[in-house]
Simulated scan of single mutants.
Amino acid sequence: MLKKVCNLAQIAGHAIMDCYFSTKQSKNIFYKSDNTPVTDADYKSNNIIKKGLSLISPEIPILSEEQSHNIKNYKNWHTYWLIDPLDGTKEFLKKNGEFTVNISLIKKGIPVLGVIYAPFFDILYFSNKKEAWKKNKKKGYTKKISVSQTKKLLLVISRSHPHKKLDIFLNQINTNYKIKKLGSSLKFCYLAEGKVQIYPRFGNTFIWDTAAGHAILTAAGGTVKTWDGKELNYSLSQRSSLINSGFLASS
């Protein structure tokens, strides 16, 4: 199943890249009710993934960013696919390459499988419950990845979503650190492969923004916990909203 989902993410990523290089892209930008952008690339990727997952596992329901978000409709889902067809639409529009395809499998509130494909860089991250890997097609390797325990502290933060509480958090760190700004779920991937050690998030995210990265990071040895110390949970029966609270992802 993991191999099939990886292939599906890459097919969706190739469709996104067709839109990325299209001269018509700027004419196909729409805005949702919360004023966030969505493009033809989001919809094309969404259609590919939903169709593909329905063939892979027709018995498992799918929750996507690009559909109705009335959580009452999903309360009885204990196992489900959670997808973000194009995570980092703002980065896609800025043409900086920092966008991804996110697919995760949730069981009893826990992301047990995660796939993140960065089509611009042609890099694939994927995990089952206990192991995580990185596949770099351009450099021709696939390797197991794990978090770093180095004493040097490198934080990764959102490129497009600043927050006032972040400054307070940074002032409380009693050690030297460096900051890297990065878009989409690549922040989780950098944590999982040991390039950075901490990803503090204070602003809102949705469950499809974090689930695949959460799965990959925990499989690589890291954690994703809310600011009150609880594991970020994806159980729809226990939620009143699809919005996450703030969290700290770390090695």
Score class of each variant (00 low, 15 high):
K138F: 02
L86I: 08
R239A: 12
K94P: 00
Q197G: 12
N47M: 11
Q25G: 04
V38W: 02
W81G: 00
L186N: 12
I173P: 12
M17G: 05
D122Y: 05
L153T: 14
K165W: 08
F92H: 06
K94S: 10
P58K: 14
F206C: 11
F120D: 11
S22H: 05
G203D: 15
H78L: 06
Q197H: 11
K27Q: 14
V38S: 13
Y190M: 11
K75Q: 15
N102I: 01
E193N: 14
K137R: 12
F99M: 06
K27H: 14
F206K: 14
S146W: 05
F92R: 02
I207S: 05
K50N: 13
A211M: 07
K139D: 14
S54Q: 15
K108Q: 10
F120T: 09
F169R: 02
E91F: 07
I60C: 03
P162V: 05
P37I: 11
I157E: 12
V196R: 00
V5E: 00
S245T: 14
K95N: 08
G109E: 09
S68F: 06
S237V: 09
L124N: 09
I83E: 08
Y177T: 12
D87V: 01
I173F: 12
C6Y: 02
G213L: 01
S57V: 02
K51T: 15
T150Q: 12
T218E: 15
K181C: 05
K95Q: 15
T142Y: 03
A41N: 04
T39I: 10
Y199F: 15
H14L: 12
T39W: 08
K95D: 04
G203M: 05
E131R: 15
I110M: 08
K94I: 10
D42N: 10
I71L: 15
A15C: 09
R159A: 13
N70I: 12
I16P: 11
T100F: 03
D167Y: 13
A215M: 05
D40S: 14
K137P: 00
D18K: 09
Q172L: 13
K144F: 01
L53N: 08
L124E: 08
I207N: 03
R159P: 03
Y20I: 09
T36R: 12
F202R: 06
F247C: 05
Y234Q: 04
L182S: 04
T100Y: 07
K32V: 02
F120N: 13
N96P: 03
G229P: 01
V224R: 00
I207C: 13
S146T: 11
I71G: 07
I60D: 02
G109R: 09
S240G: 13
T210I: 15
S237N: 13
A132T: 08
A192V: 01
K180E: 10
I157G: 05
Y125I: 06
S148I: 06
K152Q: 13
V101D: 03
M1H: 09
A118F: 04
K51Q: 13
S184N: 07
A220F: 08
E98L: 13
N233H: 10
E98V: 11
F30P: 01
Y31H: 08
G229C: 07
L242V: 10
P85D: 07
I207W: 06
K24P: 00
T79K: 13
S237A: 14
K135N: 12
Q149P: 03
Y80T: 00
L82S: 08
Q172E: 15
